[in-house]
Design a protein around this nucleic acid. Structure first.
Length: 412
RNA sequence: GCCGGGGUAGGGUAGCGGUUAUCCUGUAGCCCUGUGGAGGCUACGAUUCGAGUUCGAUUCUCGAUCCCGGCCCCA
């Protein structure tokens, strides 16, 4: 009976895993160098954590379950909420800002397609405690640096929601939310209908439709013309000038809304080519969730990177381990094992586990791509040495084990 | 939840209402019992699952399931 893997999950073969771990470690190193500390949160949480953040509607997309103690639980669909919960539970007294990152798997009950799986990995960063433009800029610059380090060309779009919120401030909060969601979806028809339905002032309607189309060079100036010199535009301008210092390339895009109420100001998205319909590899912004989870009035800025999508377009290959194979005869297997024990602190060592004959062992070494083999036969045992054979050149010489370590150890 | 295309040895393909076939790879053995990469031969190994039509289904029909792409959604 053959059991298939669950829908939307993947098996990672050794070479896939090696490549993923390699990229993962590259990203980790970048984030650490920017002063962020890694954390781990539980794979499952109380269901309420996520319904509190995103509403009851998301339950349909969760892997939720009732545990044996009759508690409503769910596999985590994302990590911002768990990190905020963790902060509220145990980190509120930490020196600010608190700079955290995570790399974890998440679970969503969705229909799989290109770049979308039911189990997927997110690499995320949260900077907690600062509303300053410097904080937002650091987070955005870090996101672009991470992608750059993975060899990925991303297209960064930045916005400050304060501008559009300022414009909409005369409307009911509920109407504002609906408008933001439609803007996020770029649903112009729906937006027109809604504005008609709520009978929005003609002036606001005109300005809104114009604003959300503003992108690129000069967008800030045009926004000023449209709305006036409000503090939100000033703040946006400050953020952009810091990004300029970082040398980050960006596109101003007043049409990015990210659809959710808890975003407070800065929002950004990064798209990459070659990913089909799911081309967003990064999304984030500044938000306020800590209060919602029972903490203080503490702001945060963060983003999540879709690690699987990154791997989809990442071409960085992990360096190969170079295995050393010990070849022995039946009569010298004990010596082979003892040699392996001495070599393994210094290099990856394989011994024959298949009772192969001499020739087949050599062939095996060749097939797994070993650069060197160590031959241990009666002659070598008698001499108290081993034969080191270079599989590329075919050269071989009689050496002591220490000499072998000296010869090969530094290459690993 | 919706739409389209698929599922044949471990991987890649072709085929077809009548004992399927082929390439790569793996393992075991042999040509070849202390020196590999080549080649040859032999063996092992698959029609996603279920129901229906049929004398007979891998093929046709229906359903399920999984995969791929798209819609919806995307925290």
């Amino acid at each position: 009976m053959k059991i298939s893997k669950p829908r939307g999950t993947r098996d990672f073969l050794p070479q896939d895993t090696k490549k993923r771990r390699n990229v993962e470690n590259i990203l980790r190193q970048v984030v650490r160098n920017w002063g962020f500390n890694e954390i781990i949160t539980p794979t499952f949480e109380n269901l309420e954590l996520f319904t509190l953040k995103s509403g009851e509607g998301i339950i349909g997309e969760l892997y939720n379950f009732r545990d044996k103690g009759d508690r409503e639980m769910t596999l985590r669909p994302e990590l911002t909420a768990p990190v905020m919960r963790m902060y509220v539970n145990e980190m509120q007294a930490y020196q600010q800002p608190v700079k955290l990152f995570y790399f974890e798997n998440c679970f969503r009950y969705e229909r799989p397609q290109k770049g979308r799986f039911r189990e997927f990995w997110q690499f995320g960063v949260e900077l907690i405690g600062s509303t300053n433009a410097e904080a937002d800029a650091e987070v955005i610059a870090l996101a672009t640096e991470m992608l750059r380090s993975a060899g990925i060309k991303g297209d960064l779009h930045v916005n400050n929601l304060g501008v559009i919120r300022h414009l909409l401030s005369v409307l009911e909060p509920e109407q504002q939310s609906r408008i933001m969601r439609l803007v996020d979806k770029k649903d112009d028809v729906g937006l027109d209908e809604l504005l008609e339905e709520i009978d929005a002032p003609a002036d606001l309607r005109m300005k809104l439709l114009e604003l959300i189309c503003l992108t690129g060079e000069g967008a800030i100036a045009k926004a000023r013309d449209l709305i006036g010199n409000i503090p939100e535009i000033e703040a946006f301008q400050e953020l952009l000038s810091i990004l300029d210092i970082y040398g980050v390339e960006y596109t101003i895009d007043f049409g990015i809304a990210r659809g959710l109420d808890y975003y407070t100001g800065t929002v950004f998205e990064i798209y990459a080519e070659g990913l089909g319909a799911q081309n967003q590899v990064c999304g984030g912004g500044s938000y306020q969730l800590i209060k919602l989870f029972g903490g203080g009035d503490v702001p945060s800025t963060g983003f999540g990177l879709g690690f699987d999508r990154i791997m989809e377009v990442c071409e960085i290959q992990a360096p190969d381990d170079i295995p050393v194979v010990i070849i022995a005869k039946d009569s010298t297997r004990t010596d082979a094992l003892k040699t392996a024990i001495r070599l393994r602190p210094h290099m990856p060592v394989y011994t024959d586990l298949m009772k192969r004959n001499f020739k087949a062992q050599l062939s095996y070494a060749n097939n797994i791509g070993s650069s060197h083999v160590i031959i241990i036969g009666e002659q070598e045992v008698e001499a108290g040495k081993v034969t080191l054979k270079n599989m590329t050149t075919g050269e071989q010489e009689l050496l002591s084990i220490d000499e072998v370590i000296l010869e090969l150890g530094h290459k690993q």
